[in-house]
């Protein structure tokens, strides 16, 4: 190995340590007895005390359940709209207004959250003044806001997936007598399914994780888990949040690893199939 090899692998190792030490430290201290979080109380640790408190906290549990519901709804909405937008951008060719759609669909990716949050709140206020809808702010407005920024991610994922597929597959289906709707259901959708699935997971995570936009568009009645956690940790370290974090990290890691394994297997098969089906031509 050359000296450069050592350098870059050293940097990689350092970076990975940097990425994982905070998470691991948080997990370790979730089993610490002391309220002083970062001072290890060897006499009484490890303990599940904070996990007990966590599960006794109706506020945290309620907020977590609300967040799951919102994230599931937002992810579903974002996947439907994002898949349509991705399909339009990848397959419908040039049409009037395409540039605007492309801009609108990808802008949320780089938009600072405070701006998205502020603008959506002002929209909801104005809408309510004009039409009486949405009545107050809460789950509905949070969900709409999350759909809006998450759909950008789904659009990008689906669009780039479609761009990787030869569109003669769809033409072949049309040529064999399938109507456009059939083509979508029987050819396009099965092929982009991994992208749609990972888009859903991504949208779920983004929604589940969002503090800033939620803070703008949530009413007094609806506090998502990140909002509750944020207000707690603004005041300093809180041991039950460590416990919560540990559970979240474990759940997410399991979910993501499982989903990745599934989609990678599927992906590999599809890639092989497609490479082969293309027959090396063109």
């Amino acid at each position: 190995m050359t000296s450069r090899g050592w350098f870059r692998n050293g940097a990689l190792a350092l970076g990975l340590v940097f990425l994982y030490v905070p998470i691991l430290s948080m997990m370790v201290f979730s089993f610490n007895h002391s309220r002083l979080v970062t001072v290890w109380d060897a006499a009484n640790s490890p303990t599940l005390k904070w996990y007990g408190e966590l599960f006794a906290s109706e506020q945290l549990l309620g907020a977590a359940w609300l967040s799951v519901r919102i994230a599931a709804m937002a992810a579903t909405g974002a996947v439907v709209l994002g898949t349509l937008a991705g399909l339009v951008l990848a397959r419908f060719g040039a049409f009037r207004g395409r540039a605007l759609l492309s801009g609108l669909a990808t802008a949320p990716l780089v938009m600072p959250e405070v701006i998205t949050g502020l603008s959506l709140l002002l929209l909801f206020v104005a809408l309510e003044q004009l039409t009486g809808w949405p009545e107050g702010r809460g789950v509905l407005t949070i969900t709409i806001a999350h759909v809006t920024f998450a759909l950008a991610y789904v659009t990008v994922v689906v669009q780039s997936r479609l761009a990787g597929f030869d569109d003669s597959l769809e033409e072949a289906a049309l040529d064999l007598g399938a109507r456009p709707a059939t083509v979508f259901l029987r050819i396009t959708l099965p092929l982009i399914l991994p992208a749609v699935a990972s888009g859903w997971l991504l949208a779920f995570t983004l929604s589940w994780d969002d503090v800033v936009i939620s803070q703008f568009v949530a009413g007094p009645g609806a506090s998502t888990l990140p909002m509750v956690v944020f207000s707690k940790v603004r005041l300093g370290v809180s041991p039950d949040v460590n416990a919560l974090a540990t559970l979240v990290v474990l759940a997410v890691a399991t979910g993501v690893l499982g989903a990745t394994a599934w989609s990678r297997r599927r992906e590999r098969r599809l890639a092989r199939e497609q490479r082969a089906a293309r027959g090396g031509g063109r």
């Binding site: 998470i23 948080m26 994780d209 990140p226 300093g236 974090a245 979240v248 990290v249 979910g255 993501v256």
Partner: peptide, 12 residues
């Protein structure tokens, strides 16, 4: 994929 908020909090 794990929570952004919780990861920032870990640094506290």
């Amino acid at each position: 994929w794990t929570s952004f908020l919780l990861r920032v909090y870990a640094w506290v």
